[in-house]
Amino acid sequence: MNKKRLFVFEGTVLKKLPNSTFLVYVSKIEKEIFCYISGKIRINYIRITQGDKVKIEVNKMCSSKGRIVYRIK
């Protein structure tokens, strides 16, 4: 993805779904976003559970889907 066409938000994981996908609530825009895990998180076996704070990237064109890029401790 082109870095210039992305929004970066912080959100909370509401629900874990099959195939490494999650439902994330972003309070800044008051919206639930369907997210998948980035490759770096997958390679390094970082566990994401319900209630974790995460940083996500959302494409400007399709704001209903995003990618989890960082788990905030």
Rank of each mutant, 00 (worst) to 15 (best):
N2L: 09
K3V: 06
L6Y: 06
L6Q: 14
F7S: 06
F9E: 07
F9A: 04
G11Y: 01
G11T: 03
T12S: 12
V13A: 04
V13H: 01
K16E: 15
K16C: 04
L17V: 09
L17Y: 05
L17A: 03
N19Y: 11
N19P: 00
S20H: 15
S20L: 07
S20V: 02
T21K: 15
T21S: 15
F22L: 14
L23V: 10
L23K: 15
L23Y: 02
V24L: 01
V26S: 01
V26N: 03
V26W: 02
K31N: 15
I33Y: 02
F34M: 11
C35G: 10
I37M: 15
I37V: 13
I37H: 01
K40G: 01
I41A: 02
R42S: 15
I43Y: 08
I46F: 07
R47E: 06
T49K: 13
T49F: 07
G51F: 12
D52R: 07
D52K: 08
D52N: 15
K53W: 00
K53T: 13
K53S: 15
V54S: 02
V54N: 01
I56Q: 03
V58D: 02
V58N: 04
V58F: 08
N59A: 08
M61L: 12
M61F: 13
C62N: 12
C62E: 08
S63C: 03
S64Q: 13
K65I: 08
R67C: 09
I68V: 07
V69K: 03
V69E: 07
V69D: 10
V69M: 11
Y70P: 00
